[in-house]
């Protein structure tokens, strides 16, 4: 019998070496199930119902329900995030609910790597390479958007006032991580 393959995350080696900096702590997020959902409006409702989180209709807002998250990325596009290992069940449930409705559900669990930065200088660190206004007024808790961080594309999501999640494509993860390390270095006195 063949042994089951084990997972190797893009940031496993880097995150093990990350120094503790309270003003901007950096960590990887555990593996997750992810989907890119797109479709026509008639599919939005059933999709949310089947996924367990009503898809937010407000631009650049995330909604969460029992550990599942739906992030608005475009008028017909959401990034769905759920616990690791739930992908097959979610796909089956959603596809059956969406039968005959115009939509596209594509699993991207491994495409993205997620990391979190938290602390009083978290926004400053992100602003080292992200041109967005990250004040609480312009980018409140619960806001998410596709944007850039230095030369990489990221999905940025403000989970709490001083806590952000970055979803980044796997091969860019090491670069994003290194840039975050570089930017938060000055808070590690």
């Amino acid at each position: 019998m063949v042994e089951t393959a084990i997972r190797t995350g893009a940031l496993d080696a880097l995150s093990a070496r990350a120094p503790a900096i309270a003003a901007a702590s950096l960590r990887t997020c555990p593996p997750a199930s992810r989907f890119n959902f797109r479709g026509r409006p008639e599919a939005f409702g059933p999709a949310g119902e089947a996924f367990g989180v009503a898809l937010p209709q407000t631009a650049c807002r995330a909604a969460s329900e029992s550990g599942r998250h739906a992030l608005w990325l475009g008028p017909d596009e959401w990034l769905l995030i759920a616990g690791d290992g739930e992908a097959a069940e979610i796909a089956a449930k959603m596809e059956s609910a969406l039968a005959g409705l115009p939509h596209s559900l594509v699993e991207v669990s491994h495409r993205n790597t997620a990391l979190e930065i938290e602390g009083s200088h978290a926004a400053d660190v992100i602003n080292s390479g992200c041109p967005l206004d990250l004040s609480a007024k312009a980018f409140p808790v619960g806001m998410c958007t596709r944007t850039i961080f230095h030369k990489a594309e990221i999905v940025l999501w403000r989970i709490a006032e001083n806590r952000f999640r970055l979803e980044v494509w796997r091969s860019f993860a090491a670069y994003v991580w290194a840039q975050l390390e570089e930017a938060r270095r000055e808070y590690g006195a």
Binding site: T8, S128, H150, K151, R170, S171, F172, Y175, Q179, E182
Partner: peptide, 19 residues
């Protein structure tokens, strides 16, 4: 230049098998 020099001048994309 900021941090964009040396190893961070540009992203270096590597595959899962690169290591």
């Amino acid at each position: 230049a900021g941090a964009s020099r040396g190893d961070l001048f540009d992203p270096v994309r590597t595959t899962p098998i690169h290591g």
